[in-house]
Design a protein around this nucleic acid. Sequence first.
DNA 1: CGCATTTGACCTGCGC
DNA 2: GCGCAGGTCAAATGCG
Length: 267
Amino acid sequence: MAMIRKARVSVRARSEATMISDGCQWRKYGQKMAKGNPCPRAYYRCTMASGCPVRKQVQRCAQDRTILMTTYEGNHNHPLPAAAVGMASSTSAAASMLLSGSLVSTDHQHGLIINSNDFHHDLAKSTHHHPLSNFSPSLASLSASAPFPTVTLDLTTHNNHNHRPNQFHHQQMPLSQFHLASSNSPTLPSNILTLPHLFSNHQTQAAAASVSSETISAATAAITTDPSFAAALVAAITNIMGNTHHQSHNNNNNNSTTRNSSDNKNS
DNA sequence: CGCATTTGACCTGCGC
DNA sequence: GCGCAGGTCAAATGCG
């Protein structure tokens, strides 16, 4: 169970669907009741290509069942479908956004949290004002405490009493506010986002460092348009993170061989 | 009939 | 060592 895996990315979004469409094909291979959550957790495997190691878990939030939590693990060993390709490029942008924020606070349990609300305010003061900037921001966090880096996109509005209060109220569309920050930051080279020093993870750094500002604006538009985009975005984040790393470690194969070896042991 | 989903059994790691 | 919990397998079932 505790095999070494790569980046894990999860998305919290309000959705009534059982699963958010993200451009990939998935096959359900299991379902479990998780401790402390009345809602079952579903396990899916990517079937876009045979042997693709990417898996995802889908579970509703115990506190607010309108929130769907989708967690992606692993990186695709195949090109993403057209529907996800655009997202893929913007994905790393989102990752960058998560990681490049000046508004990072420390959370003893979850590692780091980037509050997009503050982000939003910062941007409002800046010269570069995005037309979408009046959309509701959201929360994104990155966990450095896990055995693998975990990025969490919280695309829900925190307007229910179970969560921290949110100064923004958008009932319908959980819109996150990712913004083009690179060109505004005096500390960053134009067109390129860099990661904060806080993250030593070189994979994430590599992924984020290669993101252009154009990509980011594309991501901004997409993210703020469709919550389901987030899922694809996240899938792509994992993909990109993995690709920056898996030249040296082919974990895709490792995953499958691990399973095989255990099977052999059993038989 | 072929494929995806369901669901109980099984495996493995972890904490006590 | 034992029990628990999370994750996966695979036979049964359902559906187009």
